[in-house]
């Protein structure tokens, strides 16, 4: 059972007064991540919106140690922190590397691949707002096809979103999960579970971004839900290769896999405006194809 939101720990490690934009999905997700870590963590973070969140308020708005590393080095820095703590016998502290989609899928992928291959004792969390938001919305390899950004202004992005989950699976990572700030209990449970495992763990959080996606700041949570209800994001965890749906996705699958039309998700955001019908159809096909692939694996895991 997913933890109910009212049962989440009352203790706060993310203090009020940070400098994220109004309606930031990352701030919501980060709050629940820190609750699950219970303060026993060292974070390492590269250039990202998260540095804006963490590095303000008299000293810092976060109650855990931070290493704000260079952009390409997140997983390498985490490797060193983990080894250093191990050398000192401080193994009760968890090492969390947390980067945005650019810092994970683009500039950070070499270090991430190295750490995954070595099976470092690191929990790597990617918060995916699907573009470089801290510098003003430039495309990343996580930006969906068709989206207009500051560096894809003419025709929108021409390439598909990079499938980082498959890349992490290919590395044989023992625990992989997806999550959303709109499902805090599910997010909390996954971080809690990953926290207590050894070796490399990877959690991918889909994070709505009001200025970058162009939607009203009050709609962050409902948009995160829409992503799940339309199947754009499937909530699942992959434990030693076995994929199981969780939370709302599990409910949808139990109900026969009836997804809301993709249009509901697309029309709620300015970034998809002007996207050609062909790309919309391709997007919808992609959602359906992924859903069926995941659902088959979910059934297989349940049967096993």
């Amino acid at each position: 059972m997913t933890t109910n939101i009212i049962d989440l720990p009352a203790v706060e490690y993310l203090l009020p007064g940070n400098r994220t934009c109004a309606g930031c999905g990352l701030a919501v997700a980060y709050r629940f991540i820190l609750k699950a870590l219970d303060g026993k963590a060292v974070m390492t973070i590269p250039a990202s919106c998260l540095t804006v969140l963490g590095g303000m308020y008299p000293v810092s708005s976060v109650h855990v140690p931070w290493v704000n590393c260079t952009f390409p080095s997140t997983a390498a820095t985490a490797t060193g922190i983990a080894a250093g703590l191990r050398a000192l016998g401080r193994e009760e502290l968890r090492v969390i590397a947390m980067a945005g989609d650019g810092g994970t899928l683009d500039i950070g992928i070499q270090a991430l691949s190295g750490a995954a291959e070595r099976n470092e004792d690191v929990l790597f969390i990617c918060y995916d707002n699907e573009a470089y938001m801290n510098t003003g919305t430039q495309r990343s390899s996580a930006t969906p096809k068709g989206v207009r950004t500051a560096t894809t202004p003419v025709h929108g992005k021409q390439e598909n979103k990079k499938d980082i989950i498959q890349i992490m699976e290919a590395h044989g990572v023992g625990y992989i999960a997806t999550a959303s700030p709109s499902y805090p209990g599910d997010l909390y449970d996954k971080v809690l579970k990953a926290r207590d495992l050894k070796g490399m763990r990877y959690i991918h959080i889909h994070v709505p971004c009001p200025p970058g996606w162009a939607f009203p700041t009050r709609d962050t949570i409902s948009l995160g839900r829409l992503a799940v209800e339309t199947g754009v994001l499937a909530l699942y965890e992959i434990v030693d290769g076995a994929l199981s749906f969780t939370a709302k996705t599990k409910t949808i699958a139990k109900g026969g896999g009836k997804l809301r039309p993709l249009e509901d998700y697309l029309s709620a955001q300015g970034r998809f405006k002007g996207m050609g019908e062909e790309i919309v159809a391709e997007f919808q096909d992609g959602v359906r194809e992924r859903w069926e692939r995941f659902a088959a694996r979910d059934r297989q895991s349940a049967g096993a």
Partner: peptide, 20 residues
């Protein structure tokens, strides 16, 4: 290029103008 403050506008300008 790759986004980085305070140079990003050069990339954004090239993204708009070069395809034309």
């Amino acid at each position: 290029g790759y986004p980085i403050t305070p140079s990003t506008e050069i990339a954004e300008g090239c993204a708009r103008e070069l395809p034309k």
